[in-house]
Amino acid sequence: MKLFNINKPDDDILPLLEDKINNLTKPKGSLGALEDLATQIGWIQQTLSPQLNYPHHIVFAADHGIAHEKVSLSPQEITYQMILNFLSGGAGVNFLAKQHGFTMKIVDAGVNYQFKPDTGIIDLKIRNETRNFLYEAAMTHEELEFAIEQGAKIVDGCADEGCNVLCIGEMGIANTSASSMWMTCLTDIPLEQCVGAGSGLNSQGVSHKYNVLKQALENYQGDYSTWDIIRYFGGFEMVMTVGAMLRAAELKMVILIDGFIMTCCLLAASKLYPEVLSYAVFGHQGDEAGHKQVLDYLGAKPLLNLGLRLGEGTGALCAYPLVESAVKMINEMSSFKKVQVTKYF
């Protein structure tokens, strides 16, 4: 398995960041979360003048064998249809990425569709879908390793283009089911609290989804190690995301975290390398059942709560202007030392 060298940023710079922020021309603490964000980004980058360079947004896409158990309201073909929509520029993630200046990369990690080679998609397809984890492991050890490695390589490509702030999204019908399994197994939060409506199931549909996942959990014969949980219940797009997050932290990038699925990917990454959490900025709290609980488990403070549940990375992209504002605050506001303003509290 690929190894990562992820270090927590050096805390020695924190008092210097605090002093700079506290001496900007404002009452101490009056810009609230923007001050916390500026501190975190300066800490990640080890500078009093942080920068956000060439932001990239990666969408990893794949299909799930568990979808055949009708755990999602949406049929599996929605995955490839939405990818075609991404490629044509017509999805929610497209206007937000364009609005905020993100370069988009769309990766076929395992979609049950053969895209034409000239569409612009990055073809890293492992197979057309994962296996059905109701009956067997979603992927082999070799497929797991490949997905981790390829997710990391995609981030290397972003870094080569000058990127130091990364947003990640996903597309894959039934991936809330896989995420619920990761959540319950990696946190010991009861499965019932981890299962939600996904793309719009009614109460009867949620009950069916829960029963299928409960049976899958009862059928599981693994060792409950983090790697085995990731392999047995995960999606190819989710595992590539884990690899991408770990590589981004290794490269000391700011990582914008989206909704339930991406938060569960970060949860998995943090069980392998806890230091990855230092690099995470949580964009929002979504409406999917379980998201608040996993955020609380991670001690996260999301920037927004707008009732979003689209996925694709849209919530994290919506939060990006706040990250920009935090960086502009620390770089562009005057200090009491430079202007003739009496320091006030």
Rank of each mutant, 00 (worst) to 15 (best):
L191C: 02
Y273K: 13
W182S: 05
D12W: 10
A319Y: 00
M183K: 08
F86R: 03
Q221F: 01
T140W: 01
L267N: 04
N211E: 15
E18M: 13
V242K: 03
L52H: 01
I58A: 02
A97S: 15
E332G: 01
G235R: 05
E312M: 05
A300G: 11
G157W: 01
G315D: 07
P27T: 08
V323T: 00
T47L: 07
G198W: 03
N331Y: 06
E77Q: 14
C167M: 13
E218T: 10
C167K: 04
G92A: 14
I66Y: 08
L24C: 12
A316R: 02
L298V: 11
V206N: 00
L48I: 12
N53M: 10
G205C: 09
C158L: 02
V276K: 03
I122M: 15
M139D: 09
E192R: 14
P55Y: 07
L34R: 07
C265H: 04
M329R: 00
G120V: 13
A178W: 06
L246K: 11
F115G: 04
Q204S: 14
M139H: 07
M240N: 04
T187Y: 01
F345L: 13
A269E: 09
C194L: 12
L14P: 05
G157T: 05
I83D: 02
H284L: 03
G65W: 10
A174T: 10
K2V: 15
S325I: 01
D11M: 14
Q81V: 12
G92Q: 13
G196I: 12
